[in-house]
Design a protein around this nucleic acid. Structure first.
Length: 211
DNA sequence: TACATGATGCCCT
DNA sequence: GGGCATCATGTAG
């Protein structure tokens, strides 16, 4: 495997923009978890943008509550929520303090710490195909990175001391396409899902024409 | 205090 | 490709 030369955490100003700009630029970046001696890394291959009050599908649509307050806070913070009684999902807040918006992480391509991810997911890896079960899907990737609401919600992902952050690795930005978002019923026609076209680690349709 | 709902994934065919 | 487990949250009462 090609050795990674990771940057530090992406700066706060990276997230201090409209989610529709942040989303596509997050594609190809690296999600990093430092867990004691272990280092988990994976390339971001699929995300979705959720806007503020103008987006009926966003958790922030109905205004600020105790649950979604991170989305209204400063940019670059982790918003972790629990869904369907089983799964955690990871988002990062966007826009200045006071404005709601965020990016949902939907799929990653595992790079390092794969054994640890498999352990956290409670599965075994038999071949390359099994790698997809690690981090393809919002709930899966959260589990593979040990992400929970108690541990990570409101965490500052731009803090160099953070054990969870997003870094660049100097590689060229991949070709990004956008499609409609997945698993929602409101505002379902907006093209706010961003992904690397054809990447096998993407969850759901991997091309523009496949819906 | 009760209840409907959901930005899902697993386990069957 | 479809059924379903499972519970935090918000809202109504």
């Amino acid at each position: 495997m090609k050795p990674l030369t990771l940057s530090g955490p992406l700066p706060q100003k990276f997230y201090n923009r409209d989610p529709r700009r942040v989303g596509p630029e997050l594609i190809g970046k690296i999600l990093v978890r430092r867990d004691g001696k272990k280092l988990l890394t994976a390339r971001i291959v699929e995300v979705e943008a959720y806007l503020g009050q103008d987006d009926p599908a966003a958790h922030s649509a109905a205004g600020r509550t105790a649950r979604n307050s991170v989305l209204f806070g400063p940019p670059g913070r982790a918003y972790v929520y629990f869904i369907y009684g089983n799964h955690f999902c990871l988002n990062v807040s966007c826009l200045p303090d006071g404005e709601a918006g965020g990016i949902l992480f939907r799929a990653l391509e595992p790079l390092s710490g794969i054994e640890e991810m498999a352990k956290l997911r409670g599965i075994r890896i038999h071949g390359p195909r099994d790698l997809r079960n690690l981090t393809s899907g919002p709930g899966r990737l959260a589990e593979a990175f040990g992400i929970t609401r108690v541990r990570d919600n409101e965490k500052n992902l731009t803090d160099p001391a953070s054990d969870l952050y997003i870094a660049g690795d100097g590689s060229p930005r991949p070709k990004v396409i956008s499609t409609i978002r997945i698993g929602i019923t409101k505002a379902a026609d907006l093209p706010l899902r961003y992904l690397i076209s054809g990447n096998v680690f993407v969850s759901g349709p991997r091309h523009l024409d496949a819906r």
